[in-house]
Design a protein around this nucleic acid. Structure first.
Lengths: 122, 122
DNA sequence: CCGCATCCTCCCCGATACTG
DNA sequence: CAGTATCGGGGAGGATGCGG
């Protein structure tokens, strides 16, 4: 994902790659419901994530213009993460996919409760 | 993906899992533009796919109600694959994600041509 | 408090060969 | 023509520990 192999990539695969991986979607869902969130607060809400994965996911999301990182040089250090305007604009497409998923789950008799993070992005 | 570990799954992750993996999206994009396609025709359009991956992907898509498999008992054997009505209904959400991706690619100065399969699902 | 480096594990996917 | 069986490599992601 970090490799500079800029091949032919269709916009759909491109978009899916940006939010791909295990943790990016949960991160986006949390940031969607709050103005800005501190690193450790984010970590507590994402049960089971390691520092490694959280910082890496945030870094990639930031590089792709989805997430904004605001660092305050205080003691103790404080860093706030939030969705950029670009980042917020992906919520609508994701919601429509989520709607499709909900309908499809019902139709396929796949009874599953919703996860805590992604319950509702609206 | 075949494991019976029906945990809590949000509709969004659920939907993304159905079209996840390396080949399912290209397959869907091809089937979106034709009424029905034979196995070997599908294989020729998907440069580089193996029998293993093609049959496995089709099987999972069929189990999930996205793809319909019609078998004709002729000699030589003939099998036609097509999108179900359910399958076609996911094209709209995917298109809106694709639109977002296109806009975002432009804004991020990521110049990339589109791939052959996903050029346009409409 | 925030984040990186290293090592290790698991499973997706490819290559190859074979069958009705 | 339309698949299945088996083996193995590589990359994503987890565990642990260190650094500013």
């Amino acid at each position: 994902m970090e490799k500079e192999e800029r091949e032919a990539v269709c916009p759909l695969k491109y978009a899916l790659n940006l939010v791909g991986g295990k943790w990016k979607l949960p991160i986006i869902c949390i940031l969607a419901r709050e103005e800005s969130v501190r690193y450790n607060s984010l970590k507590r809400k994402l049960c089971g994530i390691t520092n490694m994965m959280l910082s890496q996911s945030l870094k990639e999301l930031e590089e792709n213009g989805i997430v904004h990182r605001e660092q305050y040089n205080e003691i103790p250090p404080r860093v706030e993460y939030s969705l950029t305007k670009e980042g917020r604009s992906i919520l609508e497409p994701l919601d429509s996919l989520s709607e499709w998923g909900k309908t499809h789950m019902d139709r396929m008799q796949t009874q599953s409760p919703y996860c805590r993070e992604c319950r509702d992005t609206k």
